[in-house]
Design a protein around this nucleic acid. Structure first.
Lengths: 290, 290
DNA sequence: AATTTAAATCGCTTTTTGTGATGTTAGCGA
DNA sequence: TCGCTAACATCACAAAAAGCGATTTAAATT
């Protein structure tokens, strides 16, 4: 059985049709048909039910499907294992939350890049859910996300601990004061942001629910909005650097149970980490503050 | 990366040379060379150190090696998984000890074959060590062997329990008497037979060592030799059917610690059992005496 | 230096693969 | 009902790849 046939099969199954698979595989439909038919004749079973609207897996096809994915992944891993001699090189693609990137990773990336000139670093940012999705889809080797994460396909290791603080305009002298502002809004990074849920929990605990929201795409915009008195947000306390501290934004500390979040590094359990990734992780561990 | 290239690579690595691999793969040396070189150029690393005496794995090749075997096995398993719809069919190849075959399996095979007409049954017999070797080499789906078997790659399930008896010519009225015969010999099935070692232990425990041996290839020959007074043997008590019982052979019972042996069924841990095998196992379980 | 053994290279043949055109079928809408 | 369309199947041919056998190269052994 040829691995390429299997990959073709997988694409057809996933996309629900041979023509569509042909498009994805950059070939023509007759070619896909041929490969699928050959696979079927080798196996002696029908893998698809053809219909006017495409191809649907037969039970035999369904049994084959998980192997197609596994074999594909294994071939890939085999290549990486053979190439990877322990000296980090190649492309390392990791994800992180925007806040983690800004707060923790930014300073690390430069020194990592300097220490491992053979590695092309790619950092993607997004929400915890997005990152987890991409790690599962093998688009990222791993990601820093808001923990805890429990998923059978993933392993996670604690990376950082953040102390979140409620941020408000400087005239509010306490959390209570900040929350009493009329027409208070939640200023959040974007839908799905890990800290948004936490913020809502914190407020709900104080009997405040159903606030309006303001969503911005960047941290700077959020801080600007908070400084302008548009609302409050919840972000790592140390994110408020000299430029914002004091005059323009006030950070209200919360009790530990509300404030502390673990940032964990997750990766697929079944994917062997590249040397570049291992080096990155040890780099992070070595240089983290505590 | 092509799976066939990987298989070629694996053969070269295992046999230590391209010419040898070519012979095993039924092709010519230049072909093997070409495949290996392509694999190397795809991966961008050298997999072998060529020398006058063959090809030896480089570190990169060593890292690739385990994947070659795994991928090969997975492809195989994928094919079986796709074909196997739960209705036992195809070829089921299992191994067993000769005594187990004669005593336990013979009656089962007919009824199994009747119950599953789609299955071609192949039964190989040999010693425990041979059977284990063949299961590990994937020549057999599983085998009945003399337990206990501990091996990280195997799983074993108890199948039968045999009571061994010391067999002698009928004039010896007791174990002691049987063993006092001058010029006593051990009549054993063949070198490596599981019960031979047990017999030697039993005798050693009675202070008898260094006896001459007679080896035969079939059970019938052994029983004939014992009946003729040539020596003693150790075999399952119930093996002595009406044709031999009483007049021609005497079975001397031993104490349980000496007599009892477990027959276990072993199979590779990483190999998914075919439906034919599952049916066979349940057939065995269902019909065994106790 | 000749011999031997194994890998690399090369030209050729055969086989496999990919392509585009065409055929076939089943549902859909006028 | 009659096309029409969107899907897979088939086919012939061109292109690419694989396989083969002869030859070359390299290194160790005699």
């Amino acid at each position: 059985m040829d691995a390429r046939d299997l990959a073709t099969f997988e694409a057809v199954a996933r996309l629900g049709g041979m023509s569509r698979a042909a498009r994805e595989l950059n070939t023509v439909q007759s070619n896909v048909t041929q490969r699928v038919r050959r696979l079927e004749s080798i196996l002696g079973v029908a893998l698809f039910e053809r219909s006017r609207s495409g191809a649907r897996l037969t039970p035999a096809g369904q049994r084959l499907m998980p192997y197609a994915a596994r074999i594909d992944a294994l071939l890939d891993e085999a290549g990486r294992a053979a190439r990877d001699d322990g000296a980090p090189r190649g492309t390392l693609t990791v994800g992180s939350l925007e806040t983690t990137a800004a707060l923790r990773l930014a300073p690390l990336l430069a020194s990592y890049a300097r220490a491992h000139p053979g590695v092309d670093l790619v950092l993607r940012t997004g929400t915890t859910a997005e990152m987890v999705e991409r790690v599962l889809g093998r688009e990222l080797e791993g990601a820093f996300v808001c923990g805890p994460v429990v998923h059978p396909q993933l392993v996670s290791a604690p990376a950082f601990e953040e102390e979140l603080a409620l941020l408000s305009a400087p005239m509010a002298l306490s959390v209570t004061a900040a929350l009493q502002q009329p027409d208070l809004r939640l200023v959040v990074l974007r839908a799905g942001c890990s800290y948004r849920q936490r913020l809502e929990e914190v407020l709900a605990h104080r009997g405040i629910v159903g606030l309006r929201r303001l969503e911005f795409g960047t941290l700077e915009a959020i801080l600007g909005a908070v400084a302008a008195g548009l609302g409050v947000t919840l972000l790592p306390r140390t994110l408020i650097g000299p430029a914002w501290r004091g005059a323009r934004i006030r950070a209200h500390r919360l009790k530990p149970s509300e404030a502390l979040v673990q940032t964990v590094f997750v990766r697929r359990r079944d994917m062997l980490p590249s040397s570049a990734l291992l080096a990155f992780q040890s780099h992070v561990t070595k240089q983290r503050p505590r």
